[in-house]
Write a protein that binds this DNA or RNA. Structure first.
Lengths: 351, 351
DNA sequence: ATGAAAGCGCTAACAC
DNA sequence: GTGTTAGCGCTTTCAT
């Protein structure tokens, strides 16, 4: 027995009140075409009078859809994901869809749970940004709710995947650094351990350096366990203490770049005069750092929109061929590489 | 083995497969007490064999519960709300609840829609952090899903409200500033326009200054339109150009404080030597600013937990008396007021 | 154009 | 302990 709160008004009640059949009321509620205006008005009056609200659960049970898609992100605390979530939510809302948010903490176990459909049948589709998940984890997925992948990891699997061109983006950032005359460009945020989520960005970094005839040896790579501010700070300190003297640093993401800048600031190393710093994700925080941060700027709005569209395109049993979609990106050049240009604020206003 | 790609297994199918009644299967699925272990095992085997997943829509239709609560936040881009969302999600998960996330953009219209149950969402409860909403908007709420309010605004309405003691917290921050010898403490982030969400923090700021016999006149208050980095930056610039020379600034939130610090940095004003800065919310970003930010640190985990508990306590028609719950807070003192203390990193490690 | 009736998959009386 | 059965509120043939 549903513990009745307030007045529970059903279609049946409205029908009785209006003196028509349930079907007619349903027709009105669903904006069915062939209803006489008079009838429509009459039913509408009863609806208003009784304060009728359709019961979504019943509708879902009947139609087999819930109007909800899940978005599973590694970490909401990282502003990139928060901003991405906002984009997905807005995009979904535009399609009358609602977003259910999960965060996996980037833990494989949690990611597995999510993509194995522990949400059972509450959701019509799933957008997942995996960190630790391996291809084989996704291979035996028995679920039938459409899955769309986000993020840097690439899997050779029949799922839609939305991402920017990470290699090209990383190369652009490093090229910018080289163009500024830097010759020792370190990378912060490679991965320790078996899997390597930063793979593509490391590759882009290395390719560009190699193409320019510059070093990209292991001594220039600072591996980390996580991807937060503290990890970037610690990695930068290690780099400084290693004896190596890079004149530029490219970080896996903005929080790490900002952590690195804090370490540099504390050590009295000037940014960008002594060491230029570039990040990845273009989060708001970077734009307002004391020295604003140069960063690869993915088109988050596009990523969110494409992800939602991809999921919705697979609803109702439709199964378009899996596709890899490239969202756009650009390089937001700011003080951490350019130095303070012109009047105050100019570089900070960039985006 | 699930047959075909459309896995559509119902209780009935499992019952047939196991040679028992649906009730028995239902009992197993719901962990009903009185089932013989042998029977349980047998049913479980069929469940696994068929890959049965309960249909939530049907369960909801029957029970009147969905296992989903909605969380409506003004802005996911503000890390405070992102961190809060994470706390709510985790807390809900601990109760086997799932969180559906909305963001209102702090727009009154959107907030209204949400709390009026727009799109008649499939939710058991709603946690809302309003910015613009007025008491009268909430007064005529016809919805019967439990509503819990979060945040600084206080309404004289019969809803649970979870917040820290904003006045006390603001006073503590200002007291800290005064204790450091500051005599002209400005406030950044008061509101332009009719409603004043920052009210309590402004009040705390004023009370503490008044108690200390220090000025809190209008010239020390910088109003803003929004609550982002850029607003704080602009407000700080206006303050500097006003002729007034505060030796400390208390900002409505951390993003504004950080924006203000950027402005100060750009103008060559030293923090904290010339002007000390304190913020509110203790977001990660502040801990890793070049000059780490002193900030009021609300117990986000507690807020999230209390909010979820409050909502769940009102489920199933239970209507405990509305209550105002105070979550804890403390002042995280860092370099933006203390200066660089001792060895590198010490103050940044604080939280 | 409108009505009657059959379920969607599940839970909870109530029987045995 | 386990089975039978009646709906939860809605959409949807199929008549009319």
């Amino acid at each position: 027995m549903p513990e009745g709160n307030t007045v529970r008004v059903s279609l049946r009640d409205v029908a009785a009140h209006a003196g028509v059949s349930v079907k007619t009321v349903s027709n009105v509620v669903n904006d069915y075409q062939h209803v006489t205006p008079a009838m429509r008005a009459r039913v509408q009056r009863s609806i208003d009078a009784l304060g009728y609200r359709p019961n979504l659960a019943a509708r879902h049970l009947r139609k087999g859809r819930t109007g909800i898609i899940a978005l599973a992100l590694p970490e909401l605390g990282n502003p990139y994901f928060a901003e991405l979530a906002a984009a997905v939510i807005d995009s979904a809302a535009a399609h009358d869809y609602t977003v259910l948010l999960d965060h996996t903490g980037g833990r494989r176990e949690q990611e597995l749970l999510v993509c194995r459909g522990f949400r059972a049948r509450v959701i019509d589709g799933l957008i997942l940004s995996p960190i630790e998940l391996e291809a084989e984890d996704l291979g035996d997925r028995a679920e039938n709710v459409p899955l769309v992948l986000l993020g840097e990891r690439e899997y050779d699997l029949p799922y839609d995947h939305i991402a920017i061109d990470n290699v090209a983006a990383a190369r652009a950032a490093v090229r910018h650094l080289i163009g500024l005359g830097r010759r020792e460009v370190a990378f912060i945020g490679a991965r320790r351990g078996r899997s390597e989520p930063a793979q593509l960005r490391v590759r882009g970094w290395r390719e560009e350096l190699t193409a320019a005839g510059l070093p990209s040896d292991a001594g220039l790579v600072a591996a980390t366990d996580g991807w937060g501010h503290a990890d970037g700070e610690a990695a930068m300190i290690r780099l400084l203490d290693s004896g190596r003297r890079p004149d530029a640093v490219f970080a896996y993401n903005d929080p790490m770049a900002i952590g690195a800048m804090r370490a540099l600031h504390a050590r009295g190393v000037r940014v960008p005069e002594d060491i230029a710093v570039a990040g990845f994700d273009d989060v708001v925080e970077g734009r307002f750092a004391a020295v604003s941060l140069t960063s690869v700027s993915p088109d988050k709005e596009a990523i969110g929109r494409l992800a939602v569209e991809s999921v919705l395109a697979r609803l109702g049993g439709r199964t378009p061929a899996p596709r890899r979609v490239r969202a756009g990106h650009r390089l937001a050049e700011r003080e951490s590489t350019l130095g303070r240009v012109g009047a105050f604020g100019a570089p900070g206003r960039d985006t």
